[in-house]
């Protein structure tokens, strides 16, 4: 249960990062969410064996991460966290897909290419998502999602969840610590689980009731009135259009190949 505190700290760390002030943080969340979605879509659209075409896409996370001052350790950690999953799903490819591909003088099964492709996709997609959340406040993300057409009731859910996840993780941490002190390292049994999770649930329930009362006391009548969203400035539009163009071009033009032939041209 050590990962409890870890999760809490990580959430806190990301939240602190998101409240920094850099050119990337100052962009409209809608622009960032859309650009990231487009990025992931473009990466996903490559065929199974694509490796070189994916490489230039690293530009997106690298530029955003650098300008947004996201610590690379954090991004790396996140990528490493999902890596086992990627390995499990991709590791069979080299054995299942044995069609041979010549690599100069030696050959290689095409499965290795699709395996590398999966790993690269994982790294790119996870990196881009982490950088998005490290440069955008949760509030901003909710606002963006709402503007993109998700129901208000739902974005409100997300905002409340995010608000109380810190409170509840701490509460859970207290409950489990109290148990561990008496348990002498004995793992949690299913029979105890019911009452442990159950009492956590009852506390949650009571808290929800009190939160509701607090809302009612301040004139809540079932309708949430958020702040009117900030204007989508020309800067934001430029960011979105610029990246949109770059990503589409990178999708259409295989940059490594282009460079390679340039190299050859220079050499000959």
């Amino acid at each position: 249960m050590a990962n409890f505190g870890d999760h809490l700290r990580e959430l806190g760390a990301l939240d602190r990062l998101a409240s920094m002030d850099t050119p990337i943080h100052r962009l409209d969340p809608r622009a960032k969410v859309l650009a990231t979605l487009l990025f992931i879509l473009m990466v996903a659209s490559f065929g199974r064996y694509e490796v070189s075409g994916l490489l230039p896409f690293a530009l997106f996370p690298v530029i955003l991460g650098t300008l947004g001052e996201v610590p690379w350790g954090l991004v790396g950690k996140r990528v490493l966290m999902v890596l086992p999953f990627a390995l499990v799903l991709g590791i069979l490819n080299p054995f299942l897909d044995r069609s041979q591909v010549a690599f100069g003088s030696w050959t290689l099964s095409a499965g290795w290419l699709s395996f590398a492709s999966i790993l690269l996709r994982f790294a790119l997609c996870v990196g881009a998502s982490v950088i998005l959340i490290a440069t955008t406040s949760m509030d901003g993300v909710c606002m963006a999602l709402e503007r993109l057409g998700l129901p208000r009731v739902f974005t409100l859910q997300i905002a409340l969840l995010y608000r109380y996840v810190f409170v509840l993780l701490e509460e859970t941490l207290r409950i489990t610590r109290a148990r561990e002190l008496r348990a002498n390292g004995r793992p949690l049994l299913l029979s105890e689980y019911g009452s442990l999770a159950g009492s956590l649930f009852l506390r949650t329930w009571e808290r929800a009731r009190r939160v509701h009362v607090a809302m009612l006391s301040r004139g809540f009548e079932g309708e949430f009135h958020g702040a009117s969203p900030p204007h989508f400035r020309s800067k934001d539009a430029a960011f979105l259009m610029g990246w949109g163009a770059v990503l589409v071009v990178l999708r259409l033009v295989n940059l490594p190949h282009l460079l390679e032939s340039l190299l050859k041209g220079v050499a000959s």
């Binding site: 249960m1 990962n3 409890f4 999760h7 009731v153 409100l156 859910q157 997300i158 905002a159 409340l160 969840l161 995010y162 608000r163 109380y164 996840v165 409170v167 509840l168 993780l169 509460e171 859970t172 489990t176 949690l188 689980y193 442990l196 999770a197 956590l200 649930f201 949650t204 329930w205 808290r207 929800a208 009731r209 939160v211 509701h212 809302m215 079932g222």
Partner: peptide, 17 residues
């Protein structure tokens, strides 16, 4: 409405138990 939000946080926490 608030109940669902807070329950979301509960699910998040209980998934780690």
């Amino acid at each position: 409405l608030p109940l669902m939000g807070v329950l979301g946080a509960f699910v998040f926490a209980v998934q780690m138990l």
